[in-house]
Amino acid sequence: MNRRDFVKVLGVSAMAGWASLEARAQAAVAPLKELADQKRLMFGSCLALKYFNQSPAYKELFLSQCDIATPELHMKWDSLSHQAGEYDFSNADQFVAFCAANRIKVRGHTLVWHDSLPAWVKQKISPETAKTMMLDHIHAVAGHFAGKLYSWDVVNEALDPGSQRPDGLRASPWLQDIGVDYIEQAFRATAAADPKALLVWNENYLEVSNGFGDAKRKAMLSQLDGLLARGVPIHGIGLEAHLRSDQANVLGDASYEVFLGELAKRGMKIFITELDIQDTSLPVDVGARDKAIADLYRKFLTASLRQPAVRGVITWGLSDSFTWISGYRPRKDGLPVRPLPFDANCQPKPAYYAIAEALEAAPRRA
Rank of each mutant, 00 (worst) to 15 (best):
G11A: 03
V286L: 10
L49T: 13
K8C: 04
L335T: 15
Y352L: 01
D343G: 02
S245H: 05
T132K: 15
A219R: 09
Q54C: 02
Q185V: 01
F342A: 04
D67K: 13
L47D: 14
L221I: 13
P118S: 04
K124M: 09
S304M: 06
R217I: 02
R165W: 11
Q176L: 10
M75F: 06
A130G: 11
S281C: 13
D177R: 00
W174E: 03
C99Q: 05
H82V: 04
S245V: 02
F271S: 11
V154A: 07
P161L: 04
W201R: 00
K8L: 10
S116A: 12
D136L: 03
P71M: 03
L359Q: 08
G236S: 02
R24S: 05
P195N: 14
V250P: 00
P341A: 12
E207V: 08
R103L: 03
V258F: 00
D285G: 02
D160K: 07
A48W: 06
D279N: 11
Q83A: 14
K124W: 01
V154E: 10
V250H: 01
S172M: 00
W324P: 05
C346L: 01
Q164L: 14
G231I: 02
Q94P: 00
G312R: 10
R329T: 15
I314N: 06
E360T: 15
L228D: 06
F6I: 07
P336N: 01
I68L: 09
A193M: 03
T129R: 02
P71T: 12
S151G: 03
T70A: 09
A97V: 00
G168W: 04
F43M: 06
P308C: 04
V96K: 10
A191W: 01
P308K: 14
Y205N: 12
T132L: 13
V96L: 04
K291T: 14
G226E: 14
L224K: 08
Y256Q: 08
E34Q: 15
E240A: 09
D225T: 12
V232D: 00
I270D: 11
R40G: 05
S255M: 08
D153L: 13
A16I: 06
G213F: 11
A358L: 07
I314K: 00
I237D: 04
E128R: 12
W18V: 13
H139D: 13
V155L: 01
L275Y: 05
I293V: 15
S64D: 08
R338M: 05
M1D: 07
Y58V: 02
P118G: 03
K8N: 11
T190Q: 10
D177P: 00
A354F: 09
V250S: 09
K299D: 01
A57S: 12
H74T: 09
P31K: 07
T315S: 06
T280M: 07
K269S: 05
